[in-house]
């Protein structure tokens, strides 16, 4: 097990962000009766032993269906949640336990963009106030003029110009794309080096989606940013990301460069996901898609024994319901956790 993890983290010395065996269990509230009778608490194992390392200026994608733990992983990294176990390293330093000052410093350098631009902006704040908030909290920009300059610069970065036209507006006076730009500007204003983008375009219209992705890419080039891009959409991941990790029920099942993962998927779950993605090609409309997968994602409370995917796997065989497969390198930089490659 150790070896496999080492393999994934091979290049960990040069990693900007590295997580090691990261775990997050949420306790399910017991009823009073259960509490009294001493019934042991049950846990939702949202993230259950995830390891990966992100290289500088890389865009790393976590892909999976809802409930696979990808968003929780993102929140653990920006320290919105405390991990139940495992370590997070930022530029080689363990950031799992930090003093208050260190934490402030860390938060300035690691920021997050949320999925829903409608709920990520306080409806009572004007754009100026939204952007000023991180400055006030972290006490960056001592004078009003300094803060104003930073705000104007951030708005220019996301091309909300002329700035005067936008600073006085409330979120409801902005279009969906403009809101997401404001959210990006808020994440950028502290000049971070690492951004967690949690489904930043999934709530947006198609044409705006492209616009925001292009903007994020441009910002990456200009500021040398590193992204963790969390999505359920393999198509945008392919377009935007260098490497993709596919998660299933709190674990990574396959990890490879975007091109290899999409052109040569190995894990049955990845294959199913890829087949399921609709393509804008009407010639297939009379053909039924054969999706090699059974049923739906089970609840993260009752995780199946052995390989978590085995109840839905059409290729399952003898060891699948007993042993948990390790991540194994099947080709350079391509890791798969499946007994089909490890046991056969």
């Amino acid at each position: 097990m150790v070896e496999a993890k080492e393999a994934v983290l091979m290049d960990s010395k040069e990693a900007v962000m590295k997580v090691e065996n990261l775990r997050k269990y949420f306790m399910i509230r017991r009823s009073f009766g259960e509490f009294i009778t001493g019934k042991p608490p049950r846990y939702v194992k949202a993230v259950d032993g995830v390891s990966f390392a992100i290289k500088p200026k890389e865009v790393f994608a976590l892909v999976g269906e809802s409930g696979c733990g990808k968003t929780t992983t993102g929140k653990l990294i920006v320290k919105l949640l405390r991990p139940s176990g495992g370590r997070i390293y930022f530029n080689g330093t363990d950031v799992t336990e930090l003093s208050t000052e260190e934490e402030i410093e860390y938060r300035k350098r690691v920021q997050i963009i949320f999925q829903d631009p409608y709920s990520s902006l306080d409806p009572r704040f004007r754009v100026y106030d939204i952007l000023e908030e991180p400055l006030l909290i972290t006490k960056v920009g001592e004078t009003k003029a300094e803060r104003r300059e930073l705000i104007y610069k951030a708005l220019e970065e996301v091309r909300l110009v002329p700035q005067e036209e936008f600073i006085g507006r409330f979120p409801h006076q902005l279009s969906g794309g403009q809101r997401q730009r404001v959210a990006i500007a808020r994440a950028l204003i502290l000049n971070p080096e690492f951004l967690v983008a949690d489904e930043p375009v999934s709530m947006l219209d198609l044409s705006i989606r492209a616009e925001i992705l292009e903007l994020m890419r441009e910002l990456k080039e200009r500021h040398g940013l590193t992204y963790l891009y969390i999505t359920h959409d393999l198509s945008t991941a392919r377009f935007f990301c260098d490497r993709i990790a596919v998660m299933y029920l709190g674990k990574i099942v396959e990890l490879a460069t975007s091109d290899r993962l999409i052109e040569n998927p190995v894990h049955p779950y990845t294959k199913a996901l890829l087949i399921a993605v609709p393509e804008p090609d009407p010639s297939q409309r009379h053909v039924m898609k054969e999706i090699p997968i059974i049923g739906e994602v089970p609840s993260a409370v009752n995780i199946p024994p052995g390989c978590r995917f085995h109840p839905r796997c059409p290729y399952r065989f003898e060891p699948c319901d007993k042993e948990e497969p390790e991540l194994i390198e099947v080709e350079p930089d391509h890791y798969v956790a499946c007994h089909l490659v490890s046991k056969k």
Binding site: V78, K79, L80, R107, S120, D122, E133, I137
Partner: peptide, 13 residues
């Protein structure tokens, strides 16, 4: 639970 509160917490509010 709103995202804008999470966003504020992410910068250490």
């Amino acid at each position: 639970e709103m995202d804008y509160v999470e966003a504020a917490r992410a910068v250490g509010a």
